[in-house]
Structures are given as structure tokens and as C-alpha cells.
Simulated scan of single mutants.
Amino acid sequence: AGYVALTFDDGPTAATTSQIVSTLRLYGASATVFPTGQNAQNNASLMQTYKNAGLQIGNHSWDHPHLVNMSESDVRSQLSRTQQVVQQTAGVTPQVFRPPYGEVNQTVRSVASSLGLTVVTWDVDSADWNNASASAIRQAAQRLQPGQVILMHDWPGATVQALPGILQDLQARNLCAGQISPTTGRAVAPLTGTPGGGDNGGG
């Protein structure tokens, strides 16, 4: 019936990343991860885990600040340092950018664009960052429609618990967990070629 995008922000996380990846693999599902540069640098082997699972790897700034309050040069530093460390740790260059807190302004958009990044927010917020229960996270995912994107995070235990049920529900609705098109910012079939989707269109 179509594709939806499961996204996981703020990783990689020692406690939970491997569980999320193994659950996705078990169901043959893809996802998009938005690591911070800091976490990517500190957990380089888990960046390889993301890559080896064929996940799409995006950019979530260096250390999750409120970018809309920052100067253009500081925003550029946040994004470009993260681009570099993802390239170093996972061997892919991100093409999608999730702004921390979903906050964007013209400066953030123009810097992202200059680095070849498409700004991607979300259609459904799982509220997993706000202590939502596993069942509430699973219920939120049931609102997903084809092409839509759900916000989840890499670190909450409840998200790890909710994920098998989310994937079962998607299968029951004949929806596939795909990736995010850097062209449209919508969910599409998993991008072929490199896991970052970087071999088709100026990566």
C-alpha cells in the first residue's frame, strides 16, 4: 500500500542501538537514523552497525542545540562537522537533515541546502522523548499514512519495546518501512546503492 519512514534521532546509543537494528533486521525493515555528530564520534562502531544494516543515515547537528538562535557560521559548524564525522565513521555522506527540536529558520535552511542536505521534520510525533509508554508509541505509529514520517529516538527503552509491534502493525496494514527521499523529504522504497543513498544524485 505504500511506504512510511521510521526515524530514530540522537543515536547511536550503547544501550539501545543494537537492539533497534536487530529488530529492524528481523522484520526486514529499513529506517532512517539521525545521529548527532558527538554520538557518532563517540560510538564509531555503532555507526558501522547502522551502515551494515542498510539504514539511511542523516545528520542531526553536532550536539543538539537550538540552531534558530545561532549565527550562520555556528549553524554551519554544527552541520558540517557532523557531515564529516558521519563520513569518517560510516563511509556515507548524509543527504537528509533533522533539525533539533524540529526548529528551522531561513539560516538553517540555507546552510543545510548549501551542504546538500534536505530538511526533514515529521508527520507523527511518537512522544517517546517525553516518557511515552511502549503502547502509546505503538498507537502513535498506527496514525502513519503512506509517505509519512514518524519521529522516534534511539535511546528510550520504551521505543525498543514498541518496535516489534509497530512493524507487525505496518505489515498488517500492508505498509513497508522505507527511507526518506532526499528530493521530496517523503517516505519511499529503500534507496538502492549505498546505505546513505549517496550514489544517486550528487552525493
Results as ranks from 00 to 15, higher is better:
2 G>E: 04
4 V>T: 05
11 G>R: 05
14 A>M: 09
14 A>E: 15
15 A>T: 11
16 T>I: 09
19 Q>F: 12
19 Q>E: 14
20 I>T: 13
21 V>A: 14
22 S>I: 01
23 T>N: 13
24 L>F: 09
26 L>A: 15
28 G>D: 08
28 G>N: 01
31 A>E: 11
32 T>I: 00
33 V>T: 08
34 F>N: 02
40 A>W: 01
41 Q>M: 09
42 N>I: 11
42 N>R: 15
44 A>T: 06
45 S>E: 11
47 M>F: 09
49 T>H: 03
49 T>L: 15
50 Y>N: 06
52 N>D: 11
52 N>V: 05
55 L>D: 02
56 Q>V: 06
57 I>L: 14
63 D>W: 14
67 L>R: 03
71 S>V: 01
71 S>D: 14
71 S>T: 08
72 E>Y: 09
74 D>I: 08
74 D>P: 07
74 D>S: 15
75 V>E: 09
80 S>F: 11
81 R>G: 05
83 Q>M: 14
84 Q>H: 15
85 V>C: 10
86 V>G: 08
87 Q>P: 05
87 Q>C: 15
91 G>F: 00
97 F>L: 09
99 P>L: 02
102 G>S: 01
102 G>I: 08
108 V>R: 00
110 S>G: 06
112 A>D: 05
113 S>M: 03
113 S>H: 08
115 L>W: 08
116 G>L: 05
118 T>W: 08
119 V>I: 07
123 D>K: 00
123 D>P: 12
123 D>M: 14
126 S>R: 06
126 S>L: 11
126 S>M: 14
126 S>A: 10
127 A>Y: 15
131 N>R: 10
132 A>H: 11
135 S>C: 07
138 R>Y: 10
140 A>C: 06
141 A>Q: 03
142 Q>W: 06
147 G>E: 04
148 Q>M: 03
148 Q>P: 07
149 V>I: 07
150 I>K: 01
151 L>K: 01
152 M>G: 03
152 M>R: 03
152 M>P: 09
152 M>N: 03
153 H>F: 00
155 W>F: 14
161 Q>K: 14
162 A>L: 09
162 A>M: 07
163 L>Q: 07
164 P>N: 04
167 L>T: 04
175 L>G: 00
176 C>P: 04
179 Q>N: 02
180 I>T: 07
181 S>G: 13
185 G>I: 01
186 R>S: 06
192 T>C: 04
193 G>M: 06
194 T>R: 15
197 G>Q: 07
197 G>E: 05
198 G>P: 11
203 G>I: 11
